[in-house]
Design a protein around this nucleic acid. Sequence first.
DNA 1: ACTGTTACTGAACACGGTATTCGGTAACAA
DNA 2: TTGTTACCGAATACCGTGTTCAGTAACAGT
Lengths: 181, 181
Amino acid sequence: MDRRQKKTRNAIFSAFTDLLRTESYSKITVQQIIDKADIGRTTFYSHFETKDDLLKSLSQEIFDHVFSDDLDKEKTHDFSQNHGTGDRILHILYHLQEHMDYLSGILSGDGGELFMDFFKAYLVDLFTPSVRSVTRSAPEDYILNHMICDFSETIRWWSRNPQYSPDEICNFFLESTPISE
Amino acid sequence: MDRRQKKTRNAIFSAFTDLLRTESYSKITVQQIIDKADIGRTTFYSHFETKDDLLKSLSQEIFDHVFSDDLDKEKTHDFSQNHGTGDRILHILYHLQEHMDYLSGILSGDGGELFMDFFKAYLVDLFTPSVRSVTRSAPEDYILNHMICDFSETIRWWSRNPQYSPDEICNFFLESTPISE
DNA sequence: ACTGTTACTGAACACGGTATTCGGTAACAA
DNA sequence: TTGTTACCGAATACCGTGTTCAGTAACAGT
């Protein structure tokens, strides 16, 4: 990839995440991103079709990292052994913490929906096994939706209360959501 | 109130809810509402400051009805006796069912946030007693947020799966959310 | 029926944000 | 060195929002 392209793409991403730290997604204009990244208007639109497209790309980058299966290569924590749902949740929380500062800007406001849709697509895989093992009169689809919502909302709550550790958050979540393993 | 005002206000509301049956809130333009209600642009803006304001007013009307305490006056169902949290939930579900057809248009999309904020304000009162009786390591605020999210998402799910009765939905909710009474 | 008030009308307008176009410049890779 | 590719930025079309204003129609009270 062309050095210039990389540079520009990086500039856009970091301008974007910078803005997200102080402003919610929906209030950020393309012009602000352009100014902060110090690039031409045309350049922005040659990299991303729309602002939503940029958010999608950013989400993609975050999730590619967060949900990567290279659990052993991680240094901040060690999950080289058992990979049950609980462990995977904790693993995800550890990763998300790294992005927490600007995640709140995405989650609060309308942009949250776009991000969340993305998020949920990943969470479906995570929670489907748990749903199977829970026997309730409610339809599987309801339970799954319920778990995903619980987790999403936990993240959202965490972004507003960042003083808690991933382990604490994980416990909060597990004790208030019916996941039997 | 002036007869003309009432007529206009009604025309706006019914045009709005009509549109909500086929389109999500964020995609509906003021012009569409104006055309469907067959009123002048100025008239719309003399009734409501913005589109969001209209949604707020509609939400207000819905909730005034749904959360009214005149439980005994209702004819579709009878809750003249015990008013525990479970009963109140069922009561609310019965009322919401009447608005289900256009509620989905509000809930899906960005407008959901605005409506939900409103909704949550009412739900806080509903769930606070339950939170108190639940002993968990998680902070009260987390639990409360969790319950409200569960309920909101249940409504959302219901709007996508309208074949279920209020009683069934109530059961689904109660069995998957930790409400000890 | 008259009169003052209030509500509705609709075209025109200012504004802000989005996304595109285009001619020109600078950086790259071979 | 040369052809390609990326970047620049001003100008522009577009769309939706919300306001203005002069004129018309409906209302309520006497």
